[in-house]
Design a protein around this nucleic acid. Structure first.
Lengths: 227, 227
DNA sequence: AAAGGCGGAATGAACATTCACTCCACAAAA
DNA sequence: TTTTGTGGAGTGAATGTTCATTCCGCCTTT
């Protein structure tokens, strides 16, 4: 129910709509204030339902968030796979997936930040550690991006770095930029997005030229010990 | 105070040490559970002090966190500047700063996550938007990394991307990797770090070769509208 | 003995969750 | 067609818990 809801008989259109209202309110508020920062009462108010109603659809606050995360995360993954063709060249597949993350983040800012929050929470970290990702159809096999990296390394097209480093190089900048965009700190135009995606590719691609510079500078201090 | 603290007379060495204990406990707990997820009582217990003692050193919970953030953020910036030489080549300066972030994150995981949490909180976002960063000596001028980018662009060494995009390309992967490292999901060795830093440079450097591929694929859908 | 740092019980506000109740759509009965 | 009965969605005040903050008596220091 929004402003001036004429409160007529909620017969048909509202069938199950309360659940959606609650879900959207939860995503919006938690994406901004975090799990502990958003009381149930605030969710109820934002959704325009009674506090008790939330407990008709979700066992408790934990499972409210967990259920929503699974749903949102699956939808996100499906979005990435939309139009994805595993037979295309490595670079095209890489750009498709990365562009998808960009698009999703810009078009679904609340969902994007919600997912981010969850992944960085103790719960999300535990989940990742246990490799118990959302079982939305996939059988626990590698994510498409990881397949792209593996195939690219086999073709000598992608650098010989650990998967985690490649993922960081690909996704890190995107997450960073999208967050700044959502926060209203920057305005992303299409050119910037395309050039940034190209730069992400430059980061992971295996160079063929011979003028590579060394990285290890003799003066750089050891990273092992505290000063 | 850790386990079995012999609780002898806290005469001399503890002068003002309560404050340090509180600060360390706060950083540790908030870096893991977030602001709203860590009660004062938990901080007091972790620090081994009474809850009331915290209010002898800090006005309330808000300023506890804000004061600590300012302190930690300044120390972090100073660490980055340690050994920094503005007369060195662009690439060396870039690598110095990025390596510094890596080192700091690995050596100070709690502080690193604490800073990250703060920057991503509504408070931190507001601060960034108002460009009211910690005034720890600097007169509000550009951060060193931004100077490096500006100078690099003037020398045609660094890509013509918005500052925000360059920062994302440089820092995004590092933050991403360090978080995974702190979470215990990966083990970072020196080679991986060096190669990842080199890859970050590849992302932002202006290429001289002519075999650059275009990015805009004709089939890529528009990013403006929802489907 | 006086002063003040300190711990932790005391306090009131805010929270998650429950529950007794209302309301309405529909169906059976009349 | 009208009346009555029923089940389940919806509600928000009530409940017990947890929180931030205060306060007071103890205990160290001087």
């Amino acid at each position: 129910m929004n402003i001036h809801s004429t409160k007529k008989s909620p017969t048909q259109a509202d069938l199950g709509s309360k659940r959606e209202l609650i879900i959207h309110a939860t995503i919006k508020l938690i994406s901004e204030y975090g799990f502990h920062g958003t009381p149930i009462s605030m969710i109820a108010q934002e959704a325009g339902v009674g506090a008790g109603t939330i407990y008709r659809y979700f066992k408790d606050k934990d499972s409210l968030v967990l259920d929503i995360f699974k749903q949102v995360n699956c939808a996100f993954k499906e979005t990435l796979l939309h139009g994805y063709d595993a037979n295309q060249p490595i670079r095209d597949r890489f750009l498709h997936l990365c562009r998808g993350i960009f698009q999703y983040g810009i078009q679904n800012p609340y969902e994007f930040k919600f997912i981010e929050q969850f992944y960085n929470s103790p719960y999300g970290t535990t989940l990742r550690r246990e490799k118990l990702f959302c079982n939305c159809g996939d059988t626990g096999q590698d994510l498409p991006l990881e397949q792209v990296f593996a195939a690219g390394q086999a073709q000598q097209v992608i650098k010989e770095l650990p998967q985690a480093a490649l993922i960081a190089l690909a996704i890190g900048p995107i997450v960073f930029l999208v967050k700044d965009s959502i926060a209203g700190l920057i305005q992303l135009d299409k050119t910037t997005i395309n050039n940034t995606l190209a730069a992400c590719w430059d980061a992971i691609q295996q160079e063929t030229g011979t003028n590579r510079q060394p990285v290890i500078t003799p003066s750089s201090p050891s990273i092992e010990e505290k000063p």
